[in-house]
Nucleic acid binder design. Structure first.
Lengths: 215, 215
DNA sequence: CGATTTTATGGCACTCTCTGCCAAGATAGC
DNA sequence: GCTATCTTGGCAGAGAGTGCCATAAAATCG
């Protein structure tokens, strides 16, 4: 009762402070960029963990402290695209159609959009990258469930809400894969077409159910 | 024109025949069962590839010819559950509601149902198993796309069809995860309740759109 | 039957991934 | 300065997974 700082189990005010979450996130992102560049240049199997570490000026030992496998190094950059979707959905005003909001408001990540698409394209023939890609999207499902739940005035752990979130995630994922495939095969596309596809996918996935708040 | 057996690039009628697909499939299934048993008994990281190989009377070298990683050994058993879903959907008569057909007709795999659920339960804390699980379901999406396409009289590669298939797959996957979680936490459940959940998930995912053939 | 061809398997050596352990460097308050 | 806490690197090691080659198992042909 009279304790001062027992709330947090670790409250040492002495010695070096642990790396901030922000800084750790940046470090992982930088590693991710380097790894993707190497994967694209020389292939995944031809790239060793030591090369990735060297590219960002770290030792291999430290690299394995940031990532549990060399393939999972692509995760932070991939997460940027799912995060962008989630943020767009957070800004989605009630009373408007989801598809129109996506077209009007969604912006893919500024700097890493191409790198992200490159990974998705590589994942077509690299099972390990495929697995990472799917795991990243599954993590997005949980966040989308919160958004959908708030939207519908229900709880995030309800089965119907989770299914709806997964449905939404699947639509976004498949569209992204589609665009990445075209992009990798040299077919360039205007961004309006990508958003149009996105809109179509979301429409056929939701059938307007989350488009407006029901009673 | 006058050639006799040039149609197939490999038509040697001499020497030992390659292992039949069926036999190879059985061998992979047997390995899968042994691996899952070991994973459940002593954990994934504590189980070595050599142990899995030994459990089925193979050398480690041969094991790596059947599976590319020790985690992927669980794949054949997991596929049994997705295959069961796909087969149920194939038997789905036109003009009936999908949910009712599932409740009336679906039977999970006879022998490996529990093992499969055990893997799904383990996958909550084992990222590698999680990845396999997601990949297995993604493969099911492609097959479901064919079923949905035929059902709707459209093409399997259409975006809307693929999204619909992915939606269906997500509903099945999440419900299975739900059941596996309850099962692993000791909460036993009658199979009717599982099917009821399945039905609810499918309903909230499809909104009856694939329930009947539209014009 | 043996000779021959093709495939499946096993053994060995090897690289690479990833971890545990400890020492050294960095940052903070005393 | 001293001390505490955290980060990093180096090193050794277990395990994953592969290439290579020898051998065993099927199958056909003579």
């Amino acid at each position: 009762m009279g304790d001062t700082a027992v709330m947090t189990p670790s409250a040492p005010t002495r010695g070096r402070r642990p790396m901030s979450d922000r800084r750790r996130w940046l470090q992982r992102l930088e590693i991710s960029r380097a790894a993707i560049r190497l994967f694209a240049e020389q292939g995944v199997t031809e790239t060793t963990g030591e090369q990735i570490a060297e590219a960002v000026g770290l030792s291999a030992r430290t690299l394995w402290r940031y990532f549990r496998s060399k393939e999972s190094c692509v995760e932070p950059v991939l997460s940027l695209t799912t995060d962008a979707f989630v943020e767009t959905l957070r800004r989605w005003p009630t009373g408007t159609a989801l598809e129109e909001h996506l077209v009007a408001d969604h912006r893919p990540p500024e700097q890493d959009g191409e790198a992200s698409l490159a990974v998705v394209a590589m994942s077509r023939h690299e099972p390990a990258l495929r697995a990472i890609w799917l795991v990243v999207y599954e993590r997005a499902e949980a966040v989308l469930a919160e958004v959908v739940a708030e939207r519908l005035g229900r709880e995030p752990d309800e089965l119907a809400v989770r299914v709806q979130a997964a449905t939404l995630a699947a639509a976004l994922r498949i569209t992204t894969e589609d665009i990445a495939a075209d992009c990798a095969d040299g077919r360039t596309r205007p961004r309006e077409e990508g958003l149009a596809r996105l809109s179509e996918a979301v429409r056929s996935a939701t059938h307007g159910v989350v488009g407006d708040v029901p009673a």
